[in-house]
């Protein structure tokens, strides 16, 4: 239970960071996508099925705090999770560094996929709801590659701390069960 609450708080924290801290730090046009990075890390380390609930909750809070239509983030993130899980099963090695390298590669392509999908989805939603394509105004351009590169760097920075935290929470819960 404590583990779940901690994870929920961390998810909300990540959504708050995404909407306030990161735009303030990266005052250019390119901001790392925490939701996407966490999705890849979770799927790579825990698998598709175990990460699904977290991805849905993270998408919800991301959409709420970033003023996007609720449900918009979950579509690309779940597709990315599905793709990452299929690829990681084929290519993942047991060594930690190899896992990180594959995760970095997956984040790069996932960012481009996410950018393209959100661009077309928002156009579609814009036309369907208000008759204009500018409902959400995302941008598809060269900056998508810069965002992908930034996401790769961010993933490399947070990959091991997040895995350590997961392990710590697992151990904490395991100890509690044993002591009972």
């Amino acid at each position: 239970m404590l583990r779940r609450i901690t994870i929920l708080l961390l998810i909300i924290f990540a959504a708050v960071l995404q909407s306030s801290f990161l735009p303030a730090v990266f005052s250019g046009r390119i901001v790392p996508d925490i939701a996407l990075i966490l999705t890849v890390i979770w799927v790579v380390s825990r698998g598709f099925e175990d990460s699904l609930a977290r991805i849905v909750v993270l998408s919800f809070f991301s959409d709420i705090l970033s003023f996007r239509p609720v449900g918009l983030s979950v579509i690309p993130l779940v597709l990315i999770a599905f793709g990452v899980s299929s690829f990681s099963k084929r290519f993942m090695m047991s060594q930690r560094t190899w896992k990180l390298s594959v995760a970095m590669l997956l984040v790069f392509f996932a960012t481009i996929f996410n950018g393209v999908l959100v661009f077309f989805l928002s156009r579609l939603i814009g036309y369907a709801t208000s008759g204009t394509p500018d409902y959400l105004t995302p941008v598809l351009g060269i900056s998508i590659f810069a965002t992908a590169a930034l996401n790769v760097i961010t993933l490399a920075a947070v990959y091991f701390p997040i895995k350590k935290l997961e392990k710590f929470l697992e151990m904490y819960e395991f100890k509690k069960v044993i002591l009972k």
């Binding site: 598709f48 099925e49 699904l52 849905v56 709420i64 239509p69 609720v70 449900g71 918009l72 979950v74 579509i75 779940v78 597709l79 999770a81 599905f82 899980s85 989805l121 939603i125 369907a128 709801t129 208000s130």
Partner: peptide, 27 residues
């Protein structure tokens, strides 16, 4: 896996189109 993905995608699309009606504004 495919079933779960499809269900979430359908629900996601459904929710997205409910947004302009202001359904999620109180939340």
């Amino acid at each position: 896996k495919i079933t779960k993905t499809l269900i979430i995608l359908i629900v996601g699309f459904f929710l997205v189109f409910l947004n302009p009606k202001g359904l999620f504004d109180p939340l």
